[in-house]
Protein backbone atom coordinates (compact mmCIF):
# COMPACT_ATOMS: atom_id res chain seq x y z
CA UNK A 1 0.00 0.00 0.00
CA UNK A 2 1.33 3.40 -0.94
CA UNK A 3 0.15 5.44 2.01
CA UNK A 4 1.35 8.82 0.75
CA UNK A 5 -0.62 8.39 -2.45
CA UNK A 6 -3.58 7.25 -0.37
CA UNK A 7 -3.39 10.39 1.79
CA UNK A 8 -3.22 12.68 -1.23
CA UNK A 9 -6.13 10.86 -2.87
CA UNK A 10 -8.36 11.02 0.22
CA UNK A 11 -7.56 14.70 0.71
CA UNK A 12 -8.35 15.49 -2.92
CA UNK A 13 -11.63 13.57 -2.90
CA UNK A 14 -12.64 15.12 0.44
CA UNK A 15 -12.09 18.64 -0.88
CA UNK A 16 -13.95 17.73 -4.08
CA UNK A 17 -16.85 16.31 -2.09
CA UNK A 18 -17.02 19.33 0.24
CA UNK A 19 -16.81 21.93 -2.52
CA UNK A 20 -19.45 22.94 -5.00
CA UNK A 21 -17.88 21.35 -8.07
CA UNK A 22 -19.97 18.20 -7.78
CA UNK A 23 -23.14 20.30 -7.96
CA UNK A 24 -22.49 20.45 -11.70
CA UNK A 25 -23.43 16.78 -12.00
CA UNK A 26 -26.20 16.87 -9.37
CA UNK A 27 -29.51 15.46 -10.60
CA UNK A 28 -33.20 15.70 -9.64
CA UNK A 29 -34.77 18.36 -7.45
CA UNK A 30 -33.09 16.72 -4.44
CA UNK A 31 -29.67 17.57 -5.94
CA UNK A 32 -28.45 14.00 -5.69
CA UNK A 33 -24.67 13.69 -6.08
CA UNK A 34 -22.46 10.59 -6.09
CA UNK A 35 -20.69 9.85 -2.82
CA UNK A 36 -17.08 9.75 -3.97
CA UNK A 37 -15.70 8.90 -0.53
CA UNK A 38 -17.93 5.86 -0.35
CA UNK A 39 -16.81 4.71 -3.79
CA UNK A 40 -13.26 5.09 -2.49
CA UNK A 41 -14.17 2.98 0.53
CA UNK A 42 -15.50 0.14 -1.60
CA UNK A 43 -12.48 0.32 -3.91
CA UNK A 44 -10.01 -0.10 -1.05
CA UNK A 45 -12.15 -2.72 0.68
CA UNK A 46 -12.06 -4.94 -2.41
CA UNK A 47 -8.50 -4.24 -3.53
CA UNK A 48 -6.47 -4.34 -0.32
CA UNK A 49 -5.90 -6.98 2.30
CA UNK A 50 -8.08 -6.91 5.41
CA UNK A 51 -5.69 -4.94 7.62
CA UNK A 52 -5.25 -2.21 5.04
CA UNK A 53 -8.99 -2.22 4.36
CA UNK A 54 -9.72 -1.56 8.06
CA UNK A 55 -7.26 1.34 8.19
CA UNK A 56 -8.49 2.87 4.92
CA UNK A 57 -12.17 2.48 5.87
CA UNK A 58 -11.83 4.32 9.15
CA UNK A 59 -9.57 6.97 7.60
CA UNK A 60 -12.05 7.65 4.80
CA UNK A 61 -14.83 7.77 7.40
CA UNK A 62 -12.87 10.34 9.40
CA UNK A 63 -12.41 12.40 6.22
CA UNK A 64 -16.16 12.18 5.55
CA UNK A 65 -16.84 13.36 9.10
CA UNK A 66 -14.62 16.40 8.58
CA UNK A 67 -17.00 17.66 5.90
CA UNK A 68 -20.19 16.37 7.54
CA UNK A 69 -22.51 17.94 10.06
CA UNK A 70 -21.21 16.11 13.14
CA UNK A 71 -18.04 14.15 13.89
CA UNK A 72 -18.20 10.39 14.48
CA UNK A 73 -21.11 8.78 12.62
CA UNK A 74 -19.31 8.35 9.33
CA UNK A 75 -16.11 7.10 10.91
CA UNK A 76 -18.05 4.38 12.70
CA UNK A 77 -20.34 3.61 9.75
CA UNK A 78 -17.64 3.59 7.09
CA UNK A 79 -15.32 1.57 9.34
CA UNK A 80 -17.94 -1.08 10.05
CA UNK A 81 -19.12 -1.46 6.47
CA UNK A 82 -15.60 -1.26 5.01
CA UNK A 83 -14.36 -3.98 7.33
CA UNK A 84 -17.39 -6.15 6.63
CA UNK A 85 -16.95 -5.69 2.89
CA UNK A 86 -13.25 -6.59 3.11
CA UNK A 87 -14.08 -9.83 4.92
CA UNK A 88 -16.91 -10.54 2.51
CA UNK A 89 -14.50 -10.05 -0.38
CA UNK A 90 -12.42 -12.95 0.96
CA UNK A 91 -15.41 -15.20 0.32
CA UNK A 92 -17.15 -13.59 -2.63
CA UNK A 93 -15.08 -12.08 -5.44
CA UNK A 94 -16.16 -8.58 -6.46
CA UNK A 95 -14.44 -8.46 -9.81
CA UNK A 96 -16.88 -7.60 -12.57
CA UNK A 97 -18.34 -4.16 -13.02
CA UNK A 98 -21.94 -5.20 -12.23
CA UNK A 99 -20.72 -6.79 -9.01
CA UNK A 100 -18.74 -3.68 -8.12
CA UNK A 101 -21.78 -1.58 -8.89
CA UNK A 102 -23.95 -3.75 -6.64
CA UNK A 103 -21.33 -3.59 -3.88
CA UNK A 104 -21.24 0.22 -4.09
CA UNK A 105 -25.04 0.41 -4.02
CA UNK A 106 -25.43 -1.87 -1.00
CA UNK A 107 -22.50 -0.31 0.87
CA UNK A 108 -23.78 3.21 0.15
CA UNK A 109 -27.31 2.45 1.28
CA UNK A 110 -26.34 0.53 4.41
CA UNK A 111 -23.68 3.05 5.39
CA UNK A 112 -26.08 5.91 4.80
CA UNK A 113 -28.77 4.26 6.92
CA UNK A 114 -26.28 3.55 9.71
CA UNK A 115 -24.89 7.09 9.56
CA UNK A 116 -28.43 8.52 9.68
CA UNK A 117 -29.20 6.41 12.73
CA UNK A 118 -25.98 7.39 14.52
CA UNK A 119 -26.54 11.05 13.64
CA UNK A 120 -30.06 10.75 15.03
CA UNK A 121 -28.55 9.37 18.26
CA UNK A 122 -26.55 12.58 18.67
CA UNK A 123 -29.77 14.57 18.63
CA UNK A 124 -29.68 15.84 15.07
CA UNK A 125 -33.08 15.57 13.37
CA UNK A 126 -33.53 13.73 10.09
CA UNK A 127 -35.10 15.39 7.10
CA UNK A 128 -38.43 14.17 5.69
CA UNK A 129 -36.83 12.98 2.46
CA UNK A 130 -33.60 11.64 3.91
CA UNK A 131 -34.09 8.09 2.70
CA UNK A 132 -35.21 9.20 -0.77
CA UNK A 133 -32.04 11.23 -1.09
CA UNK A 134 -30.03 8.29 0.26
CA UNK A 135 -31.55 5.96 -2.32
CA UNK A 136 -30.76 8.45 -5.07
CA UNK A 137 -27.17 8.84 -3.87
CA UNK A 138 -26.77 5.04 -3.71
CA UNK A 139 -28.01 4.57 -7.27
CA UNK A 140 -25.91 7.44 -8.61
CA UNK A 141 -22.79 6.17 -6.80
CA UNK A 142 -23.42 2.63 -8.07
CA UNK A 143 -23.60 3.91 -11.64
CA UNK A 144 -20.50 6.11 -11.40
CA UNK A 145 -18.42 3.96 -9.01
CA UNK A 146 -17.12 1.14 -11.21
CA UNK A 147 -15.88 3.63 -13.82
CA UNK A 148 -13.71 5.28 -11.17
CA UNK A 149 -12.10 2.01 -10.07
CA UNK A 150 -9.66 1.98 -13.00
CA UNK A 151 -8.25 5.50 -12.49
CA UNK A 152 -8.11 4.82 -8.75
CA UNK A 153 -6.17 1.60 -9.36
CA UNK A 154 -3.80 3.49 -11.66
CA UNK A 155 -3.19 6.22 -9.09
CA UNK A 156 -2.65 3.74 -6.27
CA UNK A 157 -0.47 1.55 -8.52
CA UNK A 158 -2.68 -1.41 -7.76
CA UNK A 159 -2.80 -4.04 -10.47
CA UNK A 160 -6.35 -4.55 -11.62
CA UNK A 161 -6.08 -8.30 -11.20
CA UNK A 162 -5.64 -7.65 -7.50
CA UNK A 163 -9.27 -6.67 -7.46
CA UNK A 164 -9.95 -10.36 -7.55
CA UNK A 165 -9.84 -12.06 -4.20
CA UNK A 166 -6.46 -13.30 -3.10
Amino acid sequence: MRWLRFAVLVLFITILQAGSLLDVIAVTHLSVRPDLLLILLVFFAVSCDSTEAIITSFTIGFAADLIGSVMGPRMVGFGLLGTALAYLHRVVAIRKMPHQSAAVFVACFLTGALVSFLTFLTGQPMGPRAYTALLGTSIYSAVVGPFLFLPLAWWMRIKTNRLSRA
Binding site: I54, I55, F58, G61, F62, D65, L66, I67, G68, V70, M71, G72, P73, M75, V76, G79, L80, L118, L121, T122
Partner: peptide
Protein backbone atom coordinates in the same frame (compact mmCIF):
# COMPACT_ATOMS: atom_id res chain seq x y z
CA UNK B 1 -9.12 0.92 18.54
CA UNK B 2 -10.48 2.65 15.45
CA UNK B 3 -14.04 1.91 16.55
CA UNK B 4 -13.27 3.31 19.99
CA UNK B 5 -11.93 6.51 18.44
CA UNK B 6 -15.04 6.77 16.27
CA UNK B 7 -17.35 6.34 19.25
CA UNK B 8 -15.40 8.92 21.23
CA UNK B 9 -15.86 11.37 18.36
CA UNK B 10 -19.54 10.46 18.19
CA UNK B 11 -20.38 11.00 21.84
CA UNK B 12 -17.88 13.73 22.73
CA UNK B 13 -19.32 17.25 22.99
CA UNK B 14 -19.76 18.78 19.57
CA UNK B 15 -18.09 21.97 20.68
CA UNK B 16 -14.87 19.96 20.96
CA UNK B 17 -15.17 17.75 17.88
CA UNK B 18 -16.27 20.64 15.66
CA UNK B 19 -12.78 22.06 16.00
CA UNK B 20 -11.53 19.37 13.62
CA UNK B 21 -14.04 20.50 11.02
Amino acid sequence: WFMLVGLIFLFAPQSLTNRFQ
